[in-house]
Design a protein around this nucleic acid. Structure first.
Length: 240
DNA sequence: AAGGAACCCAACCGCTTTGGC
DNA sequence: GGCCAAAGCGGTTGGGTTCCT
């Protein structure tokens, strides 16, 4: 939206993401997860750096993100948490399911900072604020419509992705998915190589609302799901 | 209707943290 | 303990949109 598309000297694309790029990234992560952000764009067919992919996923494409303006309650929580935590946006975002650190940070700088500074005054008139708020809602609704109009299954089917080669053991060992400490990462790798990385993608494994396949994969645990804002889905799926 | 100002927020940059060797 | 790579985080930028005069 903001920055014009261009390439840096290494040939990597920068700037606004196109719907096609979003589709590729979403389809790839949905299908294979994110085992290595650096390598991911290569396998997903994206001319982006891993950092950019990660950011796009975390702030925009990740499932269950709430769009639209923050509620009064959410704002109050942010103000309270900011008082105690300071500018630790990711920590604040962790307390607000569906909200990203970037979103909270932006919101803080545009509304809450002023509100906080002028607590005793009334710097932003309510009418002005609500006018802005409705603009924001209108915008975000448009973006939701645009993104949700593409059924995920359709994305997957239309994707020309090829399965990635097996990641090197080192990257698997460092994979945050491992939660069972009684089994060594290498043992787990041996057990799961076939089922996770080689297994064809089955619709049954896939929950559209979650956007990940997890039922057959022992490597996807609470920690992993929560790190992508999917705690609720994890708990629901495993009846926690 | 036009032009400037203000707002908003996606995305980039660079620093810090973490983990493996 | 030092080095390196990868990931995470927060600050900042900049261009589109909307409002105001």
């Amino acid at each position: 939206m903001v920055r014009t598309s261009c390439c840096d000297k290494t040939g990597l694309k920068k700037g606004t993401w196109t719907p096609e790029e979003d589709m590729k990234l979403k389809a790839y992560i949905t299908k294979y997860g994110c085992w290595n952000w650096r390598q991911l764009p290569k396998f997903a067919g994206l001319s982006r750096c891993g950092k950019s992919c990660r950011l796009r996923w975390m702030n925009y494409l990740r499932p269950n993100l709430k769009r639209g303006s923050l509620s009064k309650e959410e704002e109050d929580i942010i103000i309270k948490l900011h008082d105690s935590l300071g500018n630790r946006w990711s920590a604040i975002a962790a307390k607000l399911p569906g909200r990203t650190d970037n979103e909270i940070k932006n919101h803080w700088h545009t509304y809450l900072k002023k509100r906080s500074i002028h607590k005793d005054e009334n710097p932003i008139s309510n009418s002005h604020r609500s006018k802005r708020k409705s603009r924001k809602e209108k915008r975000s609704k448009t973006s939701i419509d645009a993104s949700s109009n593409i059924p995920t299954q359709q994305i997957i089917e239309s994707s020309q992705l090829s399965a990635p080669p097996l990641p090197p053991p080192s990257s698997m060992e460092s994979c945050p998915l491992v939660t069972d400490t009684t089994v060594s990462p290498l043992e787990m790798l041996a057990e799961t190589e076939e089922s996770f990385w080689n297994e064809p993608f089955f619709e049954d494994n896939y929950d559209v609302s979650v956007g990940f396949l997890y039922s057959n994969s022992p490597m996807i645990g609470e920690e992993f799901m929560c790190s992508y804002g999917l705690c609720e889905e994890y708990y629901n799926v495993f009846n926690w």
